[in-house]
Amino acid sequence: MSNQCKCNCGGKSNAFTQLDEILSKYQNTKGALIPVLQEAQSAYGYLAREVVDYIAEKMNIPVSQIYGVVTFYSQFHLNPRGKNIIRVCQGTACHVRGAKAILKAVEDNLKIAAGETTSDLNFTLETVACLGACGLAPVMMVNDDTHGRLTPEGITEILDKYR
């Protein structure tokens, strides 16, 4: 409900200077919610609760509706993202070649579930429906690097390169 600043600044500083600039750019544009969210996310890395509340207030859109939009599109993130983004393919080809076991190996290694981020913010783990590299199945990407013909045993070695 309240959009008061939640840090300890006592409301003196405006943490949303960047956001204000984004909002003012779109203030006369109808249907600008998605571009505002995209730019806010690229400015802050993710869409923090405070950011969503602030956008809701300034754009006069119910916060429940913005939450609906943010959770509908996979491009938006409500939690901080890791330095390294792991995307484990769960497509048909990977599935028949053991993608579930690969995902489990990564989850066990990072001690997080798919969709989560490690507490040190080093890794975010996601699943994708197909990476278009079916010949290499099972496959995953870490940032822009493609790793194919994976085995559960080989996962630790790959992840260690990013630690």
């Binding site: 119910p62 916060v63 429940s64 509706q65 939450y67 609906g68 959770t71 509908f72």
Partner: peptide
């Protein structure tokens, strides 16, 4: 406006 559809 308490409720909204969320997720997919």
């Amino acid at each position: 406006h308490v409720y909204s559809f969320a997720n997919r």
